[in-house]
């Protein structure tokens, strides 16, 4: 991609430099949000025992696990791709796959700071309608994704998470 950008700068200087400027602005924005996420992730990894995670977010964690998943995702900041390392730690500690998918869904679209921003830009009504749909949609997507995977594929996801060390 860096090469593409250099070519752009040579042939279309306007677009090329603009792209660099935007990437830079994005990079700064990203570096501002990411440190606390990764620090919390590291602490979670070291301090939270596997049994604890299994109890609250694992098989049989029920409603508590689902609510925790929504909560973790919605309290997050930063882009969706920052959610994947967090997902890996949750999986590694024995969280249920569907709960991890709910966390990913909530992270992608019901983040609290983002919702507030959405209301101010597009109106409260727009935001509330989308939020109501999203809360249901996230659960539906999580359940369907989980159902469509066979045991081997599920195991593979857990193994991937374990190898992310």
């Amino acid at each position: 991609m860096a090469a593409v950008n250099i070519i752009l700068i040579i042939f279309f200087p306007n677009i090329g430099f603009n792209a660099v400027k935007l990437s830079w602005k994005n990079l700064l924005e990203m570096l501002a949000v990411l440190p606390p996420i990764f620090i919390l992730l590291g602490l979670l990894d070291v301090w939270v025992k596997r049994e604890t995670m299994v109890k609250y977010m694992g098989q049989g964690s029920g409603v508590v696990g689902v609510l925790l998943a929504y909560l973790i995702g919605s309290a997050a900041a930063g882009p969706l791709y920052a959610a994947f390392p967090v997902a890996a730690v949750l999986l590694k500690k024995g969280s249920k796959l569907s709960n991890v998918f709910i966390m990913i869904g909530a992270w992608s679209t019901t983040k609290i700071p983002q919702i507030l921003f959405e209301a101010s830009a597009l109106g409260t009504k727009f935001m509330l309608i989308r939020l109501a749909l999203d809360l249901a949609g996230i659960a539906i997507i999580a359940v369907f994704t989980q159902i469509s995977l066979n045991n081997e594929e599920k195991e593979d996801i857990y193994n991937k998470a374990l190898s992310m060390e």
Partner: peptide
């Protein structure tokens, strides 16, 4: 913990940077 935090970040860093460049180019 801090070492693990850095490891996770390092793990995803190359993709982060690529994504940022792709977004920059697309938006312009």
């Amino acid at each position: 913990s801090l070492k693990k935090a850095w490891k996770s970040f390092e793990n995803i860093l190359p993709q982060f940077l690529t994504i940022l460049l792709v977004i920059g180019i697309m938006l312009s």
